[in-house]
């Protein structure tokens, strides 16, 4: 019995260590050409990694081994090693790589090119270019589905979203969004696609089964990025030109709250373990940690200059392994 209790304690100890700690946030600092790495246990910046020129987009593999960063000005993708937290490689790619995302199996890295209107598919382990897909004008935000069957990309200057089949890399459908769509986000159950339209200051909601536009939700000025709570009940949208975030009740598809957050809020991610929302404020060069339940601001973390954090920037911390 005594042994059993000790084992139980050990088990708990390991369980706690694994589940409640050890994640990092990788914030692209566009004006200081670097990535700030935030330890999400202590909320401290533990490292600033130099990358290419004017980094914007970011994607982290599930197991944290690789972090990919897009640098539209130097036209390259920086590859960061998750163990050493070092930039190990810069890959030249296209004319202006911006929005990036990984398929959920981490097999492919998808890179939207702002200038030549293509999405490039990179094998995430060999780092080789596999395919170039022509999409709409100035493609930006990308999201991928759970079944690794489709990805969605917002074509900012065409006011559309391209739906691309991952099996054959063909564009299956082009959806008409609002004005100047920049970011796309699938609801956690993948039943809905939310599209943030910068110019019309609203969010278009599509049903992913039939691609019908269900509704358009008015948000704050110049929405930039979207994240969902884990259960999908709420969506959080950053409004760049209003210094606020909008909170959307996804059941009723209504904007239920607007919250002052800081200047030029841009990238936004939900952190499952603490149920906090991390918001990147471009002008203030900080990351705000917001409690998603009581909506209190827990912390403001200073990062590099002009952070954007465009993409999924959270991943496991491998530096202690």
């Amino acid at each position: 019995m005594k042994n059993f209790l000790i084992n139980l304690w050990i088990f708990f100890f390991i369980f706690l260590k694994v589940s409640f700690s050890n994640d990092l946030a990788f914030i692209t600092n566009q004006l200081s050409n670097s990535v700030s790495v935030i330890d999400l246990e202590t909320y401290k910046v533990i490292k600033e990694i130099s990358v290419g020129s004017r980094p914007a987009g970011v994607a982290v593999t599930k197991h944290g081994k690789r972090i990919f960063v897009s640098n539209p000005e130097s036209k390259e993708i920086s590859v960061i090693d998750g163990y050493k937290l070092e930039n190990i490689k810069n890959i030249s790619l296209g004319k202006g790589p911006l929005g990036i995302a990984l398929t959920k199996d981490d097999k492919f890295l998808l890179v939207a090119d702002w200038y030549d209107h293509k999405v490039r598919v990179i094998d995430s382990s060999t780092l080789k270019l596999i395919k170039e897909i022509s999409v709409g004008k100035s493609p930006a935000g990308i999201d991928t589905d759970l079944k690794n069957s489709k990805f969605y990309v917002a074509n900012r200057d065409d006011h559309t979203v391209s739906v691309v089949n991952i099996k054959n890399f063909q564009v299956e459908k082009v959806l008409k969004a609002g004005k100047r769509p920049f970011a796309v986000a699938l609801s956690p159950d993948n039943n809905f696609l939310y599209v943030a339209n910068v110019k019309s200051s609203d969010v278009s909601v599509f049903d992913t089964k039939n691609y019908k536009k269900i509704t358009t939700i008015k948000v704050g000025k110049s929405p930039y990025a979207i994240t969902f709570l884990q259960d999908g009940s709420k969506a959080f949208v950053t409004n760049q030109h209003e210094n606020t975030i909008s909170i959307i009740d996804t059941l009723n598809k209504k904007n239920i709250k607007t919250l002052k957050i800081g200047e030029y809020p841009e990238g936004i991610n939900f952190y499952i373990k603490t149920k906090e929302v991390l918001i990147v404020n471009w002008f203030d060069s900080e990351v705000v940690v917001l409690n998603s339940m009581n909506l209190n601001i827990k912390k403001r973390i200073e990062v590099g200059e002009g952070p954007r954090g465009f993409g999924n920037f959270i991943g496991p911390n491998l530096t202690k392994n």
């Binding site: 004017r54 100047r180 471009w282 200059e305």
Partner: peptide, 12 residues
């Protein structure tokens, strides 16, 4: 130019 188009890097 189209006043709503811009490059990928905002200045501060």
């Amino acid at each position: 130019t189209d006043v709503f188009s811009h490059g990928p890097t905002r200045q501060k």
